[in-house]
């Protein structure tokens, strides 16, 4: 076991971890932050996406020990300070960008990284970015719409109803 210290959603945490303990296991099992999900074992589905030092990372493909000293943000840490949905979360609800909700936390975290890098992405850019986030329910239509709407674009003109 190794001791790690990191900041998760603004709070400093210190825990003992196994060498092979993945960041996602640490978040779900030690911190009981169960919003970060595991949907595959080959680093593809993206249900486990979190931010580590501001960068999008698959928490299933990084060891907890590697997050020593890092700032980690999970889906539980992205709502507005008053607890209301942030712009991206709200756009997902407004545009029905989720159904079963399982991929949703990863989608929201991924979308946030996209909009940070590219504040006004085109439809094609959104779709390309989402290569690493698989959704089985929505056909992506409303996810793409929600992300574009969250970027302040008029989605009525880019997305067929």
């Amino acid at each position: 076991m190794t001791e790690v210290t990191m900041t998760v959603n603004g709070k400093s945490v210190r825990r003992a971890v196994r060498g092979n303990e993945l960041l996602v296991e640490f978040l779900r099992e030690q911190l009981r932050l169960t919003g970060t999900h595991v949907g595959c074992d080959t680093s593809q589905c993206g249900a486990c996406c979190v931010h580590v030092n501001g960068e999008l990372v698959k928490a299933c493909s990084m060891f907890a020990a590697e997050a020593e000293g890092a700032e980690v943000t999970t889906i539980e840490g992205v709502a507005n300070a008053d607890g209301s949905l942030n712009v991206i979360q709200q756009a997902f609800q407004d545009h029905h960008g989720l159904q079963c909700g399982f991929c949703t936390p990863g989608m929201v975290m991924s979308a946030a990284s996209l909009l940070k890098e590219n504040p006004k992405p085109t439809e094609a850019e959104v779709r390309h970015w989402l290569q690493g986030n698989i959704c089985r329910c929505t056909g992506y239509h409303n996810i793409v719409k929600a992300i574009m709407a969250a970027s302040g674009q008029d989605v009525a003109t880019v997305a067929a109803e």
Binding site: T34, G35, H37, T74, I75, L98, G101
Partner: peptide, 14 residues
């Protein structure tokens, strides 16, 4: 959606 979007869903693995 509110619980799913905030990580507050309660799936079986949770």
């Amino acid at each position: 959606d509110v619980r799913f979007l905030t990580g507050a869903g309660n799936y079986t693995d949770d």
